[in-house]
Amino acid sequence: MDRGKNRLIVSFLALPVGLYTLFVLIPYFSALIFAFTRWSGLSQNIRFNGANNFIKLYRDEKFWSALSHNGIALLILPPVIIGLALFFAFLFTQGKGVAFSRFFRVAFFFPQVMSVVVVAVLWSFIYHPTIGLLNALLGAVGLTQFASFPWLGDRGTVFGSVLAMVVWQSVGFYMVLFVAGMQSIPVDYYEAAKIDGADSWTMFWNVTVPLLWDTIRTAIIFLAIAAMDLFAQVTVMTNGTGGPSRAADVVPTYLYSTAFSDGQFGYATAMGLVLLILVLALSIISLRFTAREALEY
């Protein structure tokens, strides 16, 4: 067609594609190579060492420990967050709808717009042994054995404390998502179910959940990917240490310290590659596992 069109295509794509190639594509694709090298960053010569990084990873207890924490997050975060969000969204859309619904939605969503760092610092205050909100509350209801208990300084509680914060921050986002989905379900479906004698519970499982399935699926994938990250949360709440005995270490924090504290860049990138494979596998599994016939309405 006309020359004007081709000129436009080239000139409009040049900058975005150029930047994207330089800062996104080149790093990602060179990571695929770095992962098979031994490189400390200082020496100019990067040596290939085949699958050695991955063999080392396989034997690295710290890596398995970090990965197991991501695994725990993966088992806990999606069901708890989606469960709570669905429950709240369901309550929201019951009856005439809820008065002050705007207030509740805005309040629930609040933590989502805050930086993870702010939320993590705020929660470090909450968990603080002496001036913290949590121990004060527990003391107020008579659980005095928790007086000055260090939630973030104890191996047994540090990671759970991080996860509780993630739940606090995320539920509102998914609730708003589900409320919107529920409100677009045609009312006839509920009326038909009512005529058949279904109660709210049956309607929830047999009408709401199936018609909301695509949204729930999206939520599962988002949260699975989030569970494989948790870098900022763990870094801030453990002052970059990964917690006592690295009890809250996750793969991204271990990767970061391997690269930027220990200077083992090739080895760290190998962890990144494992992370990529896990994220892709998780997305595919969640899509397969949750595949149902699409319900059109």
């Binding site: 994207y20 790093p27 770095f34 760290a268 990144g272 994220v279």
Partner: peptide, 24 residues
């Protein structure tokens, strides 16, 4: 091109981290 732009949405940031540091 559209597929390549998908890479930035799907791939975990942590894979790109080390090379990005050196590019910069």
């Amino acid at each position: 091109l559209t597929y390549l732009f998908l890479v930035g949405m799907i791939f975990p940031l942590f894979l790109a981290l080390v090379p990005l540091y050196f590019v910069t």
